[in-house]
C-alpha cells in the first residue's frame, strides 16, 4: 500500500492532511491515534469507499477500488443488528460474493467458507445463528469472512473492541498466525494487540507519523495527547524555514 500526499475533508473539516506512507508486502502495521484523528477515514480511503481530495493511493499496485478483491476487510462485529436472522456460514459466504452471479453459492465457495471458519477455530459454529454467538465469536466470524475473500491484505477495524480479555487472547493468537502469510493493517486502540501483532505503528492524528516497536510510555502519551501533531507541524514548518512558528509552539 502506498499513500502519497493524501488529504481528505468532510466539508470544511480537514480529517487527513498531506499523508504519506508505504506498507511493504508482508508487514503488519497497526494504525493508532486519538478518536477523530482520521484512522477510520484512512481505512475507507484504502478500501476505495471514499476518494481523496488530493494525493494518490495505490493498493497492490492498483487504484484502491480496483484492488478491493485483494483485501479482506474486518469491520467491528458490534455494529451489526444482533437479531439479524443469519448463520455464521452465511456471513462467511459473503466473502465469496464476487464469485456469485445469481442463485446459490457453488460447492467450491461453500468449502472455502467452511475452511475459513476452521482457520479461526469456528468450524463447529457454521450453522449457529449470529444472534447466538458471543462478541468474540462474532468477531472471529468476521475474520473468517475476510479470509474467505482469499486476501493478500487483511484490514481490521478495531478487532478487539467490546470483547473480553480471554476472547481477545484467542483473537490475537489467530491474527498472529495470519500475519505470517499476508499483509496486515489494523486500526486499533488496543496496545496489547499492537505489541503482539504489529511490526510497526502508524500514528494518525490528521497527519501521520511512523513509530517502531516497542512504543515507549512517553510516545504513547504524546500520541494520545495530540502533542505528536504539534511536533510534526513544527518540524515541517522548521524544514520550510518558518522559524518563527517554533517560537509559538
Amino acid at each position: 500500500m502506498d499513500c502519497r500526499g493524501v488529504s481528505f475533508s468532510y466539508g470544511r473539516s480537514v480529517v487527513l492532511e498531506d499523508v504519506t506512507f508505504t506498507v511493504p508486502r508482508g508487514e503488519s502495521l497497526c494504525v493508532i491515534g486519538p478518536n477523530g484523528g482520521g484512522k477510520s477515514t484512512l481505512a475507507k480511503l484504502l478500501l476505495g469507499l471514499i476518494e481523496p481530495d488530493r494525493g494518490r493511493i495505490a493498493v497492490l499496485g492498483r487504484e484502491p477500488r480496483e484492488a478491493r478483491t485483494g483485501i479482506g476487510y474486518v469491520p467491528q462485529a458490534m455494529r451489526f443488528d444482533p437479531q439479524f436472522p443469519i448463520s455464521a456460514l452465511d456471513i462467511v459466504l459473503m466473502g465469496r460474493l464476487n464469485h456469485l452471479t445469481v442463485g446459490l453459492f457453488s460447492k467450491r465457495c461453500r468449502e472455502r467458507a467452511r475452511a475459513a471458519l476452521d482457520e479461526v477455530g469456528m468450524s463447529g459454529y457454521a450453522r449457529r445463528p449470529f444472534s447466538d454467538l458471543s462478541g468474540g465469536e462474532r468477531q472471529r466470524v468476521m475474520v473468517a469472512r475476510a479470509l474467505a475473500c482469499d486476501p493478500e491484505i487483511l484490514l481490521l477495524d478495531e478487532p478487539t473492541a467490546n470483547i473480553d480479555l480471554s476472547i481477545e487472547a484467542q483473537l490475537i493468537e489467530t491474527l498472529a498466525k495470519l500475519r505470517e502469510r499476508m499483509t496486515v493493517l489494523m486500526v486499533t486502540h488496543d496496545l496489547d494487540l499492537v505489541s503482539a501483532i504489529g511490526n510497526s505503528v502508524l500514528c494518525v492524528n490528521h497527519r501521520v507519523h511512523r513509530h517502531s516497536l516497542p512504543l515507549s510510555g512517553e510516545t504513547i502519551k504524546e500520541i494520545y495527547s495530540g502533542r505528536r501533531r504539534l511536533e510534526h507541524d513544527r518540524r515541517t514548518r522548521h524544514q520550510q524555514g518558518d522559524h518563527s512558528a517554533c517560537a509559538h509552539d
Binding site: 469507499l49 478491493r68 439479524f84 460474493l97
Partner: peptide, 12 residues
C-alpha cells in the same frame, strides 16, 4: 441488508 459496506467491497 446485513452489511451494505462489505457487499459493496465484494462488487455488489
Amino acid at each position: 441488508s446485513f452489511d451494505e459496506e462489505f457487499a459493496r467491497l465484494r462488487g455488489v
